[in-house]
Amino acid sequence: MTTTIRQTHELGQSIWLDSIDRNILRNGVLRDLIIKEGVSGLTSNPTIFEKSMSSGDLYDADIRRLSEAGVSTETAFFDMAIQDIQDAAGLLRPVYDEERGNDGFVSLEVSPRLARNTAGTLAQALSLWSRVDRPNVMIKIPGTAEGIPAIRAAIREGVNINITLLFSLERYRSVVDAYMLGLEDRLATGKPVHHIHSVASFFLSRIDTLIDPILEAQGHKEWVGEVALACAREAYQIYKELFFSQRWARLRDQGAHPQRLLWASTGSKNPAYGDLKYVDALIGPDTVDTMPMETIKAFLDHGHPGLTLENGVEDAQRVLNGLRESNIDLEALAGRLEEEGIKKFNEPFDKLLSAIGRKMGVGG
């Protein structure tokens, strides 16, 4: 059956679900989204797991078992999360096989407590990759300054990486460079790169949430609600520049796959905007859009598949140039969003560990 998601896939964009819990893994909801609707991947983060693990009793038996084993709350969390990720990877494995390894991925994030810790991030990324032991899994590493060298090293070790918490166009360039350096490092040791996949997750709605009030206050109402889309369109131009370069051609000839751009934070946070603001406008080849369940349902109901990502590229550049001319520093605002993003992931993670600790009868 043709759905809006399948039509979008035919245009070159994968639609992933930005959610996971044991209910949808076990009651057939995720399977139906994959088989009937065409969803071809899944992403998770600490906030998603907090919502999943803190409600109901699906994890209680595991928590009792882990409590008896005397493990820490964080160890308990990752033990349970890995099981969920493995189950989701199993449901998506037919997509991965059908797409010859180019789709069908599930993402698991390193601890948000490690966002400023390069060595800790790399160590945990390698550990999670080994423990999950599925080819269609990506380990999420934040695109912080400290995360960049960890991304390079993880790619060198052959790990699929989803770079998360990207808000800055300049940081995006650094992320692509880290990816290519990791591939080059690996090739220099005589190891293959054809099996390595990566996405760079650009967060969108949070950009408009932060900058819209600033634009209103400064009298730039014409740019309200336009900055996130402008950033996404400019990021795609950077993608085309870097992945059609001579440097990339050399890697491509060795079997390397381009690092796809992924649109994250796609649920509209401003009720004045349409529920598909960050979906319908950003459909293009070699991209991914990960959506919360309510946005998936909205797209299935009234989405409009079409090649829209490069519509209005010149307008996007005019918006970005106008911001610079008005002394609105997007890079500084991106840094603020990064800090807020780390905090927004740490708070639910701490809350989750506390909830697990209560059930285990220990502190969080």
Rank of each mutant, 00 (worst) to 15 (best):
T266K: 14
E331G: 08
L126P: 10
D315Q: 14
A154I: 05
E37Y: 13
D253C: 10
L323T: 10
L11N: 00
T295Y: 00
P192H: 03
K191C: 08
K36W: 13
G267M: 08
A264T: 04
P135Q: 12
A281K: 01
L215F: 06
L276N: 14
S354M: 15
M291K: 15
S107R: 04
A298R: 08
R93Q: 08
G28V: 12
G274I: 04
G41R: 03
L276T: 13
E310G: 09
I328S: 08
T43D: 01
E338D: 14
D315C: 11
K51T: 15
A200P: 01
V110P: 01
G267A: 15
L42V: 05
L91D: 04
E10C: 00
A232L: 05
D212S: 07
G274E: 07
R116H: 13
T295S: 03
L320N: 12
A61T: 15
I151D: 00
D208I: 00
Y59C: 12
R247I: 05
D97Y: 06
A272P: 02
S268P: 00
T308W: 04
N162W: 04
L108K: 09
R318W: 12
P258Q: 05
Q218M: 09
R186A: 11
S326P: 06
V110W: 00
E68R: 11
D286E: 13
I151H: 02
T209S: 09
D97P: 07
L320W: 06
